[in-house]
């Protein structure tokens, strides 16, 4: 297996404001609104990630545009289900 890289020096951007969205409403947690709806565009974001065989990198959801994507949230590493 190739040596894994450390690419995590710069923190990932987190939620990415869609055009026309007031940037401030995204960064203030008290006004963050759920944006995910079926039939609507997926809210974009950038996140720090670990990829086996590659190491640490930043992953932007929209970089997978053009492919089918399954995004799975789960409560925590080292848990049971």
């Amino acid at each position: 297996m190739a040596e894994e890289k450390d690419g995590c020096v710069k923190p990932a951007a987190g939620p990415i404001a869609s055009p026309g969205t007031d940037e401030l409403t995204i960064t203030k947690p008290e006004v963050v609104k759920v944006q995910a709806r079926v039939g609507r565009e997926a809210p974009d974001f950038e996140a720090n990630a670990y990829v086996i065989g590659e190491g640490f990198k930043q992953v932007k959801l929209s970089s997978y545009k053009g492919k089918w994507i399954v995004l799975c949230f789960y409560p925590g590493d080292f848990t049971f289900v």
């Binding site: 947690p29 974001f45 089918w68 994507i69 995004l71 799975c72 409560p75 925590g76």
Partner: peptide, 27 residues
């Protein structure tokens, strides 16, 4: 939070899964 799965009391994302099509639309 954006995806409606963040549980603030526990500080974790609950089990949510989203199918996104090639046009970047949540199906």
């Amino acid at each position: 939070d954006l995806y409606g799965v963040y549980e603030e009391m526990a500080g974790v994302d609950i089990r949510g899964r989203f199918i996104i099509d090639p046009d970047f639309v949540i199906r």
